[in-house]
Design a protein around this nucleic acid. Structure first.
Lengths: 152, 152
DNA sequence: CGACTCTAGGTGCAGTATGCACATAGCATG
DNA sequence: CATGCTATGTGCATACTGCACCTAGAGTCG
């Protein structure tokens, strides 16, 4: 109750919300191109074509991904230089495009892991507040108090 | 899933990947409308207008959200019946649109929490495989084996 | 008062990500 | 060779987001 009505400080204050920390690129939010890290992880485990990668995705919990989305993501990551592909015949059926991860792909996978970790922490903060229940923030907004309440 | 070259079973097999579990709505992936749960959580803590909600978002780790995105999300959630709003004068400056969460909003917040939790588990599985390193999945796909390998 | 600035909210347009429906093409089997 | 399956790809529509820009009230100062 006390916080929302004293947020808009008098105009004499030099605007506390612009020059602080939202200028940093800050990986982790919003989650952009969130499918790619999982695809890249799959290919990093072993050379794989579309259906094998789909199996990895489902093993990771991504059930809702359609093949069209997966194929387009793969082509895009190849254009970006994170994957390479060759046509190889399978034991049955038409040839498959088999993908291999590149050095750039490994590098990008590492930064993706950093992003996903930051994203995970954001979700953890959600549950920190969510578990606190309504009004809990009026006294102790869990832990994010440090740089927010003080600066306004 | 462990042997990539024998995944495409002979055509006599009734195709293991279509009629199984991807038909369930399965919250948790892909992360759709991922900003809304955080906004809704903020409003559930206390009645709030745009800038206050922005502060909550930043406290939760969402630094990159622009006000235009936030305002549009708020209007959309009001149209969806999760929020209500009234115009109220502030201590200074023009009036603000102050949002309140509705019963439907509370319900939806709960299911959002379920979705976010599933999403978090997916990220955990990512790190389970990622830590295992290349080739690790050929033997023991770490831990996502439990409820996946058995049901195929 | 009139110009200016700040606050609060909103819109137009473009880019990206995705799903659904559909298309292409090779292989297999009768 | 007709049909069906495997494997990949495309067209179109939709959703979400950022960036640039707009509207409008409130306060300040000459």
């Amino acid at each position: 109750m006390n916080m929302p009505d004293q947020d808009a400080v008098p105009s004499s204050t030099p605007d506390p919300r612009e020059p602080i920390d939202e200028r940093e690129p800050l990986p982790g939010w919003p989650p952009r191109d969130i499918l790619a890290p999982f695809v890249l992880l799959a290919v990093s485990m072993e050379r794989a074509h579309g259906y094998v990668i789909e199996d990895y995705l489902r093993a990771l919990g991504l059930f809702g991904i359609t093949m069209s989305t997966l194929y387009r993501t793969l082509r895009q990551m190849e254009k970006d230089g994170f994957l390479e592909s060759t046509w190889e015949p399978g034991p049955t059926g038409p040839a498959r495009r088999v993908y291999t991860i590149t050095d750039a792909g490994h590098t990008w996978l590492e930064s993706s892991a950093t992003m996903l970790n930051a994203y995970r922490q954001t979700i953890d903060r959600f549950f920190g507040l969510y578990g606190a229940g309504p009004g809990a923030s009026r006294n102790q907004p869990t832990e994010p108090t440090d740089e927010k309440e003080t600066q306004r």
